[in-house]
Design a protein around this nucleic acid. Structure first.
Lengths: 129, 129
DNA sequence: GCTCCACTACGAAAGTTTTCGTTGACCATA
DNA sequence: TATGGTCAACGAAAACTTTCGTAGTGGAGC
């Protein structure tokens, strides 16, 4: 059973997915309102995007209610990994490790964050043993 | 002196930048040939893209030769960091640390890579002291 | 000088993304 | 039953990305 790869979400689509991941299943109205703070987009713009996303399979919708209820088709984690793999391919010669190193050295992470990452490393190291 | 933010390169533009970073200053012919293996694009397509990239400021060109010589305006590192910061903003709630953790847990890095990353962590930890 | 070739420039077309105005349907309620 | 509000659907336009055909230019070699 081949799981068909969903297309990489565009910027505007990703903004909508973020709302769906945060709020769970939502109507267009919900998403539009949630987006209102960050983006200044019209209601029908959000609606149209979500219709397109439905066609693409990025979201699924429940039409039993008058106001259709949309859900992200793919988890946030899975999408994040897809985006990272994609970026690694396009900008890091296909090497996720190089991506990580650049991300680490590029910015000052807090001490706690560094520790978290170190613990994660320990855990990974443990698994591969 | 405000350094104006260059636009995020598109997929096709990034492919060209990769060639320029690898080869150094190159003509359109050079880039086209280098791309030939991976992409099947016509010569004029590459040319047009590089003209657009010149307008955008992503590359600069030396026109003293008949075959113009193009160079990336921004280093590979800097561009990579910009792309990572951008992705962190769009898909990781603005948190590079979360991006790193997802990148690490998402894939099996080799033991050597993990060690490299650990050393990098040590260095970072040292600096922040 | 002429011809051929490689190159840049230009413009157009196709595809994708983002935006929004308009329309018609449904439902509540006066 | 009429009115008003909310909603999905549709279509179109604007912006951006990607593609390539055609034209013109300049230099090398005959």
């Amino acid at each position: 059973m081949m799981e068909k790869a969903l297309p990489r979400p565009t910027d505007a689509e990703l903004a909508i997915l973020n709302v769906l991941w945060e709020r769970g299943p939502s109507t267009v109205r919900d998403v539009h309102d949630a987006l209102a703070g960050r983006q200044a987009t019209g209601y029908t713009t959000v609606l149209k995007l979500m219709q397109i996303m439905t066609e693409k399979g990025l979201v699924v919708r429940d039409e039993t209610q008058r106001a259709h209820v949309y859900s992200a088709r793919t988890s946030e984690q899975k999408t994040q990994r897809q985006l990272l793999a994609d970026l690694a391919d396009r900008a890091f010669g296909g090497s996720p490790a190089r991506l990580v190193m650049q991300a680490l050295s590029g910015r000052k992470a807090s001490a706690e964050e560094l520790n978290e990452i170190r613990e994660l490393l320990d855990r990974l190291e443990g698994e591969s043993k």
